[in-house]
């Protein structure tokens, strides 16, 4: 609360209580349902691509990386065409959480900042949103890996 606002505390509390009561809420059930549908569809697509690679002779785990690459390519393409933001507008986390959303988070800022040049524009901005994912993913994995190594289960 703004420290400068003297003698207004009760009035401010009453105001926020009223605002909280009438503030339009996100349609959580609607959002969660569409996150489920959209996220499920993208996972299903991924499963289909994996199946395709397996049919082509890549067994078991070896189909996983090519599947990721194809999905990332699709995410980047849809972002470039201006479609991916609409998928997320409907699906929320259903569009953001899959690896296609990771591609979207890299491509969107890079496209946006092209006017700022290839180095500090595109090059630097590719990682504005993807950077935190890599940093904290790596850090957590390092800690978990170290624990497993220490316990001798790595």
């Amino acid at each position: 609360m703004g420290a400068e606002v003297r003698g207004q505390a009760p009035r401010i509390q009453r105001y926020h209580a009223y605002a909280d009561r009438i503030r339009p809420k996100p349609a959580v059930i609607h959002n969660v349902w569409w996150a489920f549908v959209v996220g499920g569809m993208i996972a299903l697509l991924g499963q289909g691509i994996t199946w395709g690679f397996q049919q082509a002779g890549l067994t078991g785990n070896r189909a996983a990386t090519p599947t990721s690459i194809v999905l990332v390519g699709l995410g980047a393409l849809f972002t470039g065409l201006g479609w991916y933001d609409r998928i997320v507008e409907l699906g929320g986390m259903g569009g953001t959480l899959p690896i296609t959303g990771f591609a979207n988070a890299m491509v969107a800022p890079a496209m946006e900042y092209r006017a700022e040049g290839l180095i500090m524009g595109v090059g630097a901005k590719l990682f504005t949103l993807a950077g935190p994912v890599l940093v904290y993913g790596m850090a957590t994995a390092f800690v978990m890996g170290a624990i497993r190594y220490g316990l001798g289960i790595g």
Partner: peptide
């Protein structure tokens, strides 16, 4: 948008407010 919020093509849901 680019200054205060997000890049244009980044998917996100606007809140009702």
């Amino acid at each position: 948008e680019r200054q205060f919020r997000f890049p244009l093509e980044l998917g996100y849901q606007r809140t009702p407010t």
